[in-house]
Design a protein around this nucleic acid. Structure first.
Length: 881
RNA sequence: GGGAGCAUAGCUCAGUUGGGAGAGCGCAUGCCUUACAAGCAUGAUGUCACAGGUUCGAGCCCUGUUGUUCCCACCA
């Protein structure tokens, strides 16, 4: 039989991956005879390389997809990348700036050329990163949000929405990023608490006197078109209807009453700037106020700002304060801490502006998406994330989808230069559908990236064509993503899927936590604390990285990336490697052809098989509940603690004994059991650590090409009695080891042990005689009659006992220290007495007896009996000393 | 302002329906035992944040407090 190398080399991972791909194992074909299982891979954006946080997200998906594949599902996991218009365009512009080139210099065509080059570079790097992680996604179906098919889907969607009245063009207050010079959606605005100032000013009133108000943004007064007070604010009611003057621009504005104003805040007076504040916009609508836009696209003051035109927001603010001071209309400054909206990509303070933009009407789209959640068609893990999703949908506002950028899907709207009619079509129409004029000009803007991402579940499968892939794989099953993506992507995929496909695009959404650095900080490019998975893989291998990411932390909470934990994972892989090596080096027969009936199995064999069966069932259950952490933990514990530390040690004597090779049944059954457990263990591990399991599995089973399609293990072994017996064996070995250390007996010192127990237990220990001696360091082992309370060990000077459930081990040797032993027994006695006391008090508690469940009470009684028995034995023991 | 999570060993974290507190790392001690020193064995360490409550019984359920993290949000 082929043997494994002495040490495991993670360097072979690349070759294994290459082989998988050459064999086309990842490719999913439509096969109506089999059940599909599909995972939606969130396409990473191409702004840069991935960090280990992305790795975690993909590892989770790969574990699920490998698990389902082994369960016999026809799995599809479609990879791809996302063009991320704002971020990518910003990066390219920044790169161009270094060369001294601007967008205007090279024009739209030239810019897009550069953008595609960027995509090829980073898209390639990302794909390479994903491969090194061992992800089994279908590279043949790899997609990019800007490739032809997906672009068609985007245009088709735009047109359908437009024709249905779900998309409109309108002049509304939008979020403007002065740095990126584009609109952004509400979801892209993040609120940060910042220290700032509240400025108090006075405007003169036409009838004389002044009205005092507060603002955090004095520069916006250039666009003020009213001053508002609360209708019931007695301080000001007499002023309502009068005119106030904005001194610096010499404009008269009315004093109005609106319930939006809070009497108790500030001076109870609010300046109203409809063009630059969402609240003021509403007030302006109610009172028919003019909207004066004072801001240019780069955030400087425009011509409406009169003498302040051309200044930046900050400069203008300073100048206005100065001017008010000069006029004697400045009152005071107050330190405050308040929330400011900033662009989530560049952190520039966002500016609300009124602009003509394209919007998606959300009201009718949101409802079914919310219903899908309420009806349980879309479930969240952890469940609480569903509330986040629902809350967003309940409060959703229209979605601004136009972006003043070039990198993206250009809006398929063609404006007639003659009559102004908007022609919406996939390709440029020859003439205006209204007036027949041929002079049409396409909208310059592109669509929000998420508009295309929202279609991903079906656009990647060929929609709007009715492909068989779409028919077979849609709707998909599972989406694994980060919580901050719920608004951007999850919500939008659901309503798009329902609107265009008639069905939600997936049924389970799993939210994984954020991976932080070892200090608990978010991994951010600006901090430079992101960990590149490739660095980790070079050092420890992808398997170690994968195992490390999945263990030791709840996946739905934030986790820290702690390097030493990689060693824990690597050590486990090494352990499995060596265990496999051990098994294989004894396999000198063709194990699968062995005829092993249950009668030929020993107690130890049945014990480990019984545990194996339970482990398989537990692991399956856990993965199906998306609890990958526990699934990995259970497998880890079973293989290391039970299989390696106990079972392998227990069977060693049987393996070493080759005397009667042909009819040495216990040796054959040991080999058979080792093979069975190891094979199943590898399968359980495969979703987590695909490479090492592939390597061991294909070495162990020379006829098998791969473990990837090996059937997921399930067993119906149930050997309760054997489990009990083995538990006592463990108890005995541990007891003796413990006693040895406590008594200061050297490990090399062999012990004489006599077991007094019932027949079943005695028989088992007889069967395990050799391994017991080996593991506990026993020289001579004998079995004495259980009824013989004081076996004849008087030949020895001193003796001690180890009590196990159902039996006693009498240990003797020449060198036990009598005083020490007395002390130990005293300690033991007080411990037992305490336990007995506790059991008795509990059993005499009426509340417990009347209300506690039956089995608990029975347990308590059994414990009491056991401890009482132990006490007797200990007393006998000390009497003998 | 609204909502959610977290607080358990020196560190990083598990603990599914309430029924005697766990793992890994680290630490201590002893072992190169013919798969593995990246290993084996044994051990020590906890007012389960604090204060109440429900219960025969609370790390777990309820109320409040403190600390901490995150999400949402248009108080000028």
């Amino acid at each position: 039989m082929k043997q494994l190398e002495k040490t495991h080399d993670p360097g072979v991972e690349r070759q294994i991956y290459q082989r998988w791909q050459d064999q086309n194992y990842f490719h999913a074909k439509v096969d109506k005879a089999r059940k599909p299982y599909t995972i939606m891979m969130p396409p990473p954006n191409i702004t840069g390389v991935l960090h280990v946080g992305h790795a975690l997200n993909n590892i989770i998906q790969d574990i699920l997809i490998r698990f389902k594949r082994m369960q016999g599902f026809n799995v599809l996991w479609l990879p791809g990348t996302d063009h991320a218009s704002i971020s990518t365009e910003a990066k390219i512009v920044a790169k161009m700036a270094v060369e001294g080139v601007t967008k205007a210099d090279i024009g739209r065509e030239g810019f897009l050329e550069r953008a595609w080059a960027w995509r090829d570079e980073f898209g390639g790097t990302i794909v390479e990163q994903l491969r090194l992680l061992g992800l089994s996604c279908d590279w043949r179906r790899e997609r990019f949000t800007l490739d032809e098919g997906l672009s068609n889907a985007v245009l088709e969607t735009f047109i359908r929405y437009y024709n249905k009245g779900l998309i409109y063009r309108g002049e509304k207050l939008i979020n403007w990023c002065p740095h990126c010079k584009t609109t952004i959606s509400d979801a892209e605005v993040e609120h940060e608490d910042k220290d700032g100032y509240m400025y108090y000013f006075k405007y003169p009133i036409e009838s004389g006197g002044f009205i005092e108000f507060a603002t955090t943004r004095p520069e916006t007064m250039l666009g003020d078109t009213a001053i508002a007070v609360h209708p019931e604010d007695e301080r000001y009611t007499h002023l309502v209807g009068q005119m106030a003057k904005i001194p610096v621009v010499d404009r008269q504005i009315p004093i109005i009453a609106d319930i939006y104003v809070e009497k108790d805040f500030g001076t109870g007076v609010v300046k109203i700037t409809p063009a630059h504040d969402p609240n003021d916009y509403e007030v302006g609508e109610r009172h028919n106020l003019a909207k004066i836009n004072i801001m240019a696209d780069d955030g400087t003051i425009n011509a409406n700002g009169g003498k302040y035109a051309g200044l930046t927001r900050e400069e203008c603010r300073e100048r206005i304060i100065e001017d008010f001071k000069t006029l004697g209309l400045f009152v005071k400054t107050q330190n405050i801490r308040h929330a400011v909206g900033a662009h989530d990509r560049c952190h520039t303070v966002m500016e609300p502006l009124i602009k003509l933009q394209w919007f998606v009407t959300m009201k009718d789209l949101a409802r079914p998406a919310l219903d899908a959640y309420i009806n349980g068609k879309v479930r969240f893990t952890p469940a609480r994330m569903g509330k986040v999703y629902a809350h967003w949908l309940e409060n959703i506002r229209d979605w601004c989808i136009s972006r003043q950028l070039w990198w993206g899907h250009r809006i398929p709207a063609y404006y007639c230069q003659e009559c102004g009619h908007i022609n919406v079509a996939i390709t440029k129409p020859g003439q205006c559908s209204k007036c027949g004029c041929a002079d049409l000009r396409q909208d310059e803007d592109v669509l929000d990236t998420w508009f295309s991402s929202a279609l991903w579940p079906f656009s990647t499968l060929g929609w709007p064509e009715k492909t068989e892939e779409l028919e077979y794989f849609y709707p998909t099953n599972t989406l694994v993503t980060a919580s901050e993506i719920i608004f951007f992507w999850v919500v939008r995929m659901v309503f798009s899927g329902i609107e265009l496909m008639g069905e939600a695009p997936f049924s389970d959404v799993i939210i994984n936590g954020t991976v932080r650095d070892d200090l608990g900080r978010k991994m951010e490019k600006s901090l430079g604390n992101g960990v590149d998975p490739i660095k980790v893989i070079e050092q420890y291998g992808a398997d170690a990285l994968r195992l490390m990411m999945i263990t030791g932390n709840a996946l739905d909470s934030d986790t820290r990336f702690i390097w030493p934990r990689l060693e824990v994972a690597r050590n486990f892989l090494n352990k499995i490697w060596n265990a496999a090596r051990f098994v294989m080096m004894h396999m000198d027969v063709d194990v699968p052809t062995l005829d092993i009936t249950p009668q030929k199995l020993t107690v130890a064999d049945k014990w480990i098989l019984s545990l194996l069966a339970k482990t398989c069932a537990n692991v399956t259950e856990r993965i199906e509940a998306f609890d990958l952490v526990m699934a990995a933990q259970i497998t880890y514990d079973f293989l290391w603690d039970y299989f390696c530390d106990w079972y392998i040690e227990m069977v060693k004597p049987r393996l070493y004994n080759k005397e009667h090779d042909k009819d040495n049944d216990t040796r054959m059954s040991a080999l058979w059991t080792l093979n069975t457990v190891l094979t199943a263990g590898l399968k359980l591990l495969h979703p987590f650590v695909p490479f090492i399991t592939e390597e061991i599995y294909t070495t162990l089973h020379e006829n098998e090409e791969t473990i990837m399609f090996a059937p997921w293990p399930t067993f119906d072994y149930r050997f309760e009695e054997e489990e009990q017996l083995a538990a006592r064996f463990i108890e005995a070995v541990k007891g003796i080891r413990n006693s040895r250390l406590q008594n200061g007996i050297a490990p090399s010192q062999k012990l004489n042990v006599a077991l007094a127990a019932d027949k079943t237990l005695s028989d088992f220990f007889a069967e395990q005689n050799k391994s017991f001696n080996m593991m506990a360091g026993v020289g001579t082992f004998s079995i004495v009659d259980a009824s013989d309370a004081q076996p004849d060990i008087s030949a020895k000077d001193t003796a001690t006992t180890v009590v196990i459930s159902g039996g006693v081990l009498h240990i003797s040797l020449d060198a036990v220290d009598v005083e020490k032993e007395k002390k130990r027994l005293e300690k033991e006695k007080s411990k037992i007495t305490n336990e007995i006391e506790r059991c008795r008090s509990r059993l005499s508690n009426e509340g417990f007896i009347s209300k506690a469940p039956e089995n608990l009470i029975a347990d308590e009684r059994a414990k009491l009996a056991k401890y009482e028995e132990m006490l007797v034995k200990v007393n006998e023991q000390s009497a003998r000393l």
